[in-house]
């Protein structure tokens, strides 16, 4: 079983070194690839200088495009599993082992590294969005996903092919809801996440509103129009 760590990076020049060096020195059992999503800062330069395994997108595609590219790479290089972690260092690779084990034990197709399996959510706007999505997934699929917006996810081979080659497989909660209803098995594993130290999140305020709109529409309406396929 070969596992690839997929690190989408948009303007992460200040943190990417720490993230990748940590993997190279402490977790040599995993391969990794950095997908530079058309960064406007020195992300590409840093990766080139350090000789990282880099997939360099010439234009900014957004997170979904970066993940799609990474999944295509994983499929091309015949990896069996892909684990997606953020380039800002908030996800700790030491939990990958737990996630892989959970995938083996439960036969899941997707394992989510969740902050809230055994821990409570704090109160903030971000968590309000998280709760709303959790609620919508619960009523449309009957399954509780405590951290649907988590960016740390493990995918198996059949998911690699779907996310890499099909339309409307963005790495977002609406895809999760659709997949659960299509019979794909999704489980969660408790992980700790750190706060980001550098750079800015993909989500600004207007983007968050648009994001929530798309998620609500995707989970409540759009998924029912899609053809279910496992």
């Amino acid at each position: 079983m070969r596992t690839l760590i997929l690190i989408p990076a948009y303007n992460e020049a200040e943190s990417i070194e720490k993230v990748v060096d940590n993997i190279v020195t402490n977790y040599p059992q995993y391969d990794y690839v950095v997908v530079n999503d058309g960064s406007t800062d020195a992300t590409r330069k840093v990766c080139k200088e350090r000789g990282y395994n880099l997939l360099d997108l010439p234009v900014n595609l957004g997170l979904a495009g970066a993940i799609k590219s990474g999944m295509k790479y994983a499929n091309f290089c015949q990896y069996d599993r892909v684990v997606q972690i953020d380039g800002d260092g908030q996800h700790d690779p030491r939990y990958i082992e737990d996630m892989l084990k959970a995938m083996d034990d439960t036969g899941s197709d997707i394992v989510i590294g969740s902050r809230f399996v055994s821990k409570k959510k704090n109160v903030s706007m971000r968590m309000f969005g998280n709760n709303l999505i959790e609620f919508l997934i619960l009523i449309t699929t009957g399954k509780k996903i405590s951290d649907p917006t988590s960016g740390m996810r493990l995918f198996n081979k059949s998911m690699i092919k779907k996310f890499g080659y099909k339309t409307n497989y963005g790495p977002e909660p609406d895809t999760l809801a659709y997949l659960i209803n299509s019979g794909v098995k999704v489980t969660e594993v408790q992980v700790e996440m750190k706060e980001r130290e550098h750079g800015t999140s993909y989500l600004s305020v207007p983007r968050s509103v648009l994001y929530m709109m798309h998620m609500v529409y995707g989970i409540v309406i759009f998924q029912w129009f899609r053809r279910k396929e496992k």
Binding site: T167, N168, G170, G218, R227
Partner: peptide, 8 residues
């Protein structure tokens, strides 16, 4: 949508 020909 069913033919997966259009984005959400």
């Amino acid at each position: 949508i069913r033919r997966s020909k259009v984005r959400l």
